[in-house]
Simulated scan of single mutants.
Amino acid sequence: MIFHSKRISQIPPYVFSSINKKKAELKKKGIDVIDLGIGDPDFSTPLHIVNKLKEELDNPANMKYPSYNGIPELRIAISEFYRRQYGVELDAETEVLILIGSKEGLAHLIPAMIDPGEVVLTPDPGYGVYRTAIQLANGVPFTMPLKKELDFKPELNAIPTTVLELAKLMLLNYPGNPTAATVDIAFFQKVVQFAKKYQIPVAHDFAYNMITFDNYEAPSILQAEGAKDIAVEFGSFSKTYNMTGWRIGYVVGNRSMIKALAVVKNNTDTGQFIPIQKAAAFALASEQSFISQNNAIYKERMMKVIELLNDIGIHAHVPRGSFFIWAEVPQGFTSFEFAETLLQEVGVVVTPGTAFGEGGEGYFRISLSVSIERLVEAGERLKSYYRTLSQ
């Protein structure tokens, strides 16, 4: 017998779980699979951060329950980082909350902000957790299409007034996943003004904040005038510091939204392990030169992939942020068909655009979190496959 709620039956399988299953099946057959699907950095966590964790593990006092809001040391380190990086002042007591990864925080924010049947404005294509969290909270997603001709930014004025009157939250994500789109502070200023007009709180997913190229610096939404009146921003140590498995993140900004999120969290978890929090605080305060070094490697990989794609006639946007490439599917394929073909025919995993919503049709996503040698190998396999088709 199968036991679950009705809402669970509405949640589609997590796309990356399905991809991993197919990948495992091919590996069992002895096929060398190159995974360009999941965005998990291949760089190691910097040694000085790992050593800090080891040091804190030797302190018996760190084995106890943590503070529900996160240890003061980490909240202060985050507030100092925002002052240093963005010129934004944060009250470490009321405007910073520690999360077990930003994914957890985003998922818990939804039920903290909406009641069943209420509307959340969400980008399409967008990170899959947005939509599933809305569904699990019995909310109603209203998709904001992200189109190439608008540089993958939502057309806010195209949202019907009737929807805006019902909306209780807006979700944004720049640098974007999957589109790798970037924005400037003027965009966030427009968002804040728009949100205030309709009294819609905004949550900005800023997971790729420090992964940028060509002198571009990703702005924080909190740099926009009056943003703290209506917005929060989610940050993560996963991508910048290569700490994906550590599960540590934060949310900053509007204290009312943070207080509501804290109520949900306080009743569902007891916070992240203290040594991990202390290592995260150390990561923010210690030397940061490895970030630009890693970004230089991502940039080299990115340009090589763009070159390889151009060689076979596939158009891709050259990103200024994130470690993803959002490429257009060749004619004759749907997004899913193209991804399935690459996996089965050449042993290369890419993520179909429709994994991120209907607006992703016609695209596929490549992650740059593998070595340049493997990226070149994947490109050569694609070239070989295309030569076979043309014969």
Score class of each variant (00 low, 15 high):
A279E: 09
T143A: 14
T132H: 10
A137H: 02
P160Q: 11
I159E: 04
G332E: 09
N177C: 13
A133Y: 07
I159F: 00
K197V: 10
I98F: 06
F234G: 02
I258A: 02
P13M: 13
A77T: 07
R374L: 15
L222Q: 07
S238N: 12
T212M: 06
L308F: 06
N62E: 06
M170W: 04
V120K: 00
V88G: 07
F152Q: 05
T162P: 06
P72F: 14
E155F: 10
P330G: 09
S390M: 12
P66I: 11
L150G: 04
F234N: 02
G360T: 01
I297L: 10
K299H: 12
A137Q: 06
F237W: 15
D229M: 09
M257S: 05
G87S: 10
E73L: 11
L90G: 03
S102F: 07
S102M: 03
F273K: 01
P66F: 09
L375K: 05
A316S: 15
P41I: 03
L156G: 00
D311T: 08
A280T: 06
E165W: 04
F290P: 04
P201Q: 00
L343Y: 01
V120I: 14
V264N: 08
S238I: 03
S384C: 05
P154R: 07
A224E: 04
M113W: 02
N267I: 01
E361A: 05
S18D: 14
A262D: 10
R84T: 12
L309T: 00
I38V: 13
D229G: 01
V305I: 13
T122W: 00
H315G: 00
F187T: 09
M113C: 13
V305K: 02
V140C: 03
N138G: 02
R381W: 09
L136E: 15
N215D: 15
E380S: 09
E217A: 09
E165F: 03
Q10N: 13
F194R: 02
K21Y: 11
Y298V: 05
K23W: 07
T212F: 02
L106M: 11
S335A: 11
T122Y: 04
I325T: 03
Q277K: 08
E89L: 12
R83A: 13
N173F: 08
T143F: 14
T45R: 11
V263L: 12
K21S: 13
R247A: 12
E307P: 03
G332T: 04
A339V: 10
G321H: 04
E377M: 12
K23A: 01
V232T: 13
S236W: 06
G360C: 04
S102K: 08
Y386D: 02
I211G: 00
Y65W: 07
T244C: 07
G353A: 05
V252D: 01
R301F: 02
P330Y: 01
I8K: 14
Y208I: 02
L342A: 00
P41A: 00
L74E: 08
G105F: 03
T240R: 09
E73V: 09
I372T: 10
K168S: 09
E118Y: 05
S322N: 15
K228Q: 14
I276R: 12
T122P: 01
V252S: 04
I31V: 15
M1A: 12
E380L: 12
P201A: 03
E345G: 07
V96N: 06
